[in-house]
């Protein structure tokens, strides 16, 4: 006598049928048919750190770090590159801190929209844009937790890539909602002729829902007047030995790059 490997459970099937009837066939997906992560290749070492080959579309990614750690420079570089690769790109800037002088960074200025709505309306605006399917949305101010709860599912449906920046403290809801979190830690400023011309920063993937976390890289970001051909600031990766003793996770004290 052989046992059915997939015995039927009428009560469970009834319940599943009810869910399907109430919320549509997309409410229930077999694990085997879950969509794979759709990464957007940034052309930066972040692709390697994410373990999926880029920043995942339909998800929230977070850049965290203290002021001066290079998170905004990195985020704006990503925005600048996305204007060429992801269609419509928006920067949600409720505190009006976006500097138009950064326009020279952007590969295609026509594709970039800066949204300066009052802070209380920022969460709703983010949901509206993500629901509409904006290619990349950079959120410069952590939205309220209630809006975050809506941004995640909306992004998953529309395939929008949501990128946020936050300081090292606070914004716990944002960190909790993110699929990918990069922690940035400044290694040192770059000086030339008595002026700051860039910085070296350690970027570490401290949370990753799509692959193993813990990868890190040392990046050199230069504030120069010539943008890189693909848009954004020139960014290059340095050996890990450039940041000895820094890092939080498994890469603390590593001497090799990557």
């Amino acid at each position: 006598m052989t046992r059915d490997p997939h015995p039927r459970h009428p009560a469970l099937e009834d319940a599943l049928g009810t869910v399907r009837a109430c919320h549509g066939h997309r409410a229930l997906l077999s694990a085997a048919h879950l969509p794979a992560a759709r990464p957007w290749s940034t052309g930066l070492p972040l692709d390697r750190l994410s373990a999926v080959g880029g920043l995942p579309r339909g998800r929230l990614s977070l850049l965290r770090g203290a002021p001066g750690s290079g998170k905004l420079s990195l985020a704006l570089s990503l925005v600048a590159r996305a204007t060429r690769g992801l269609g419509r790109v928006a920067v949600l800037d409720p505190r009006c801190r976006f500097d138009p002088a950064l326009g020279w960074l952007v590969a295609d200025p026509e594709a970039l929209t800066v949204v300066q709505v009052p802070p209380p309306a920022a969460g709703g605006a983010a949901v509206t844009l993500v629901r509409a399917g904006v290619g990349l949305l950079l959120v410069l101010e952590p939205p309220p937790a209630r809006a975050l709860a809506a941004i995640g599912p909306a992004a998953a449906r529309s395939g929008s890539l949501v990128l946020a920046t936050a300081g090292p403290e606070g914004a716990e809801a944002l960190a909790h909602a993110s699929s990918l979190t990069f922690a940035l830690e400044r290694v040192r400023w770059l000086w030339e002729r008595g002026q700051v011309v860039g910085l070296r920063t350690l970027v570490e993937c401290v949370k990753n829902r799509l692959g193993p976390a813990g990868r890190c890289a040392v990046l050199e970001i230069r504030y120069v007047s010539d943008r890189s051909p693909s848009g954004g600031l020139p960014i290059r990766e340095l050996p890990r030995s450039e940041a000895p003793g820094l890092g939080r996770g498994p890469c603390r004290g590593w001497s090799a790059a990557g």
Binding site: L112, T113, L129, A132
Partner: peptide
């Protein structure tokens, strides 16, 4: 996406004024 995003921006502008959709101009 482009059409929908433009429509969404239009709505945001209708609600919050012209600064809800700014573009970079040289």
């Amino acid at each position: 996406s482009i059409e929908e995003v433009d429509a969404a921006l239009e709505r945001l502008r209708a609600r919050h004024g012209p600064r809800a959709g700014l573009r970079l101009r040289p």
